[in-house]
Design a protein around this nucleic acid. Structure first.
Length: 197
DNA sequence: AAACGGTCCAACCGCAAACAG
DNA sequence: ACTGTTTGCGGTTGGACCGTT
C-alpha cells in the first residue's frame, strides 16, 4: 500500500506498510516512555524505521484517541465550513474534530467532499458558486434550487467566519494555539486563498 | 471468471517553522 | 545573528479494494 519503499539500502531503514509487530513495538514504547524525540525513538524502540515514519504512524493510526470509520453528517458539515474559513489547513481543521486526524480529514475532503461541492456547483477551493453564463439559472428549477442551496452555504460560511473572528480575538490574549497558528503553506503562493491572514 | 476503471487511504516527500547551540 | 537539526504540515503517490462490464 502507499508508495513503494525507496530508502531500503544504504540507510538500512525500512519503509512501506507497517507490520503488526512494528505497530506493537511502537505502541508499547510510546505507552511506556512517551515519544519524546522522534529522532531517536526508532532506535530505542527497536524499530528499523525513520523517526518521521514512526511519528506519522503513531499520529495517524496508533494513537488511542482516534475515531475511525465513517464521518457523521455533523462532521462533514464542520469540515466544509472550516475549510471555507481556513482553506487547506488540515491540522487546524482537525483541531476542531478532536478524534480525527488531519490526514484522514484531508483524504475525506479530497475523495468525497470536494466532489460533492463541485456537483452542487460550488467551487471547492473558494466555496463560492462556480462561474456560469449570465442568466443560466433562469427558468431551470433545478438550477434555481442549486443557487438557493449555495446561498445557504454562503450564509453559513459568513456566520462561521464571524464566529472565528470573535474566537481569534479571544485567543489573542492567551498563548497562540496550534489550531489557529498560521503557517505559510510550502510552495503554495500561487494558489488563490479565500481568506487572507 | 477475467479485465478494466474508479475509489480509497496509508505512507511518502519536500518544505518551512520552530528549536537548540 | 547565524547555522544546523528536528518537527510538523500539506500535497502527492500508488497498491489494494470494489463495482461494473
Amino acid at each position: 500500500m502507499g508508495r513503494s519503499p525507496c530508502c531500503i539500502g544504504a540507510s538500512g531503514l525500512k519503509r512501506g506498510p507497517w507490520t503488526p509487530e512494528e505497530d506493537q513495538k511502537l505502541m508499547a514504547f510510546v505507552h511506556k516512555h512517551g515519544h519524546g524525540s522522534w529522532r531517536f525513538l526508532p532506535e530505542k524502540a527497536g524499530l528499523r524505521r525513520c523517526g518521521k515514519s514512526c511519528r506519522l504512524r503513531w499520529i495517524n493510526y496508533l494513537r488511542p484517541d482516534i475515531k475511525r470509520g465513517k464521518f457523521s453528517l455533523q462532521e462533514q458539515k464542520t469540515i466544509i465550513q472550516l475549510h471555507a474559513l481556513l482553506g487547506n489547513r488540515w491540522s487546524a481543521i482537525a483541531a476542531y474534530l478532536p478524534k480525527r486526524t488531519d490526514n484522514e480529514i484531508k483524504n475525506y475532503w479530497n475523495t468525497h467532499l470536494k466532489k460533492r461541492l463541485a456537483t452542487m456547483g460550488i467551487d471547492p477551493s473558494t466555496h463560492r458558486p462556480m462561474v456560469a453564463p449570465i442568466g443560466s439559472a433562469s427558468g431551470d428549477p433545478k438550477k434555481v434550487s442549486n443557487l438557493t442551496h449555495m446561498a445557504q452555504w454562503e450564509s453559513a460560511r459568513l456566520e462561521a467566519e464571524a464566529r472565528l473572528v470573535k474566537e481569534s480575538s479571544k485567543h489573542h490574549q492567551n498563548n497562540r494555539t496550534s489550531a489557529l497558528r498560521w503557517r505559510r503553506p510550502a510552495q503554495r503562493v500561487d494558489k488563490p486563498r479565500f481568506l487572507t491572514y
